[in-house]
């Protein structure tokens, strides 16, 4: 087992890996920002007492949670364009499926938070004439957002990891660049290890933050 590591390869490939990292981050920001807002909308439908809003929202959430995310990516890249009648670029297909996937999980986080608030809070707000929307914004959300923060951070971490699947659609993000470089130089050990480490450096602060948040919130209760 006399393997000689070639560190020069790592230095040579670093600029391309960084370029991949930028695409990873772009994908992450896009999917997280839209996924959060869309997830909130879905959660509103999910907590609605109207069946025609509620049932599709349940279906939406369950479909995304009960199928592998890679299958979702593949479906949006290869199958969806057929009903759409237009080809999607790999980046668009990846961003779209990751956004929808994230929104389904975020919807469940929002829903959990919203239903955790006692009914009395809704009634207290109603009794002074506040509308449902006002109550949500001024009374319910301010009380639950802090509590939901660790769950959202975890979702962000999962999303950061899942962006790597876009490489399988040939989106030129970090993992894709890593695979490309490792076959170009034929140095998969060095390059894939470095790719793993870059992801670690990117994601670890998030999970450290999430663990601390969780402990702080637990201590306060």
């Amino acid at each position: 087992m006399e393997y000689t590591w070639d560190f020069k390869v790592i230095l040579d490939s670093f600029p391309l890996l960084l370029r991949g990292l930028v695409v990873t981050i772009e994908l992450w920001i896009l999917a997280f920002a839209i996924g959060l807002s869309l997830g909130f909308a879905v959660s509103l439908a999910r907590v609605s007492s109207r069946g025609w809003l509620n049932a599709p929202a349940i279906g939406y959430v369950e479909i995304f949670r009960n199928t592998p995310v890679l299958v979702q990516l593949i479906w949006f890249y290869y199958a969806f364009p057929i009903v759409l009648g237009a080809q999607l670029s790999p980046f668009t297909a990846a961003a779209l499926s990751l956004t929808l996937n994230t929104s389904a999980y975020c919807a469940e986080i929002f829903r959990g938070g919203i239903v955790s608030i006692a009914r009395g809070q809704w009634e207290g707000a109603k009794a002074i004439g506040m509308t449902r929307a006002m109550t949500m914004r001024r009374v319910i959300l301010p009380q639950v957002l802090k509590r939901m923060l660790p769950a959202f951070t975890n979702r962000g971490i999962e999303l950061a990891k899942v962006t790597s699947l876009a490489s399988l659609l040939a989106v030129n993000e970090l993992m894709y660049q890593g695979r490309l470089l490792s076959s170009t130089y034929y140095r998969p050990l060095e390059i894939l290890t470095v790719v793993a480490l870059v992801y670690f450096v990117l994601i670890y602060p998030g999970s450290y933050l999430s663990a601390r948040l969780e402990r702080r919130l637990a201590a306060r209760d």
Binding site: G120, Q121, E123, G124, A125, K126, A127, I128, G129, M130, T131, R138, V139, P142, Q143
Partner: peptide, 29 residues
């Protein structure tokens, strides 16, 4: 909402908003 501003209610369980101060609770409506 309009009716409720004209017919106020005080509950058994108070239903104050825990994330607002006393003054903010009363100012909210």
């Amino acid at each position: 909402c309009e009716v409720r501003t004209r017919v106020g209610m005080v509950f058994q369980q108070f239903n104050l908003f825990p994330h607002m101060t006393v003054l903010e609770n009363v100012m909210e409506g």
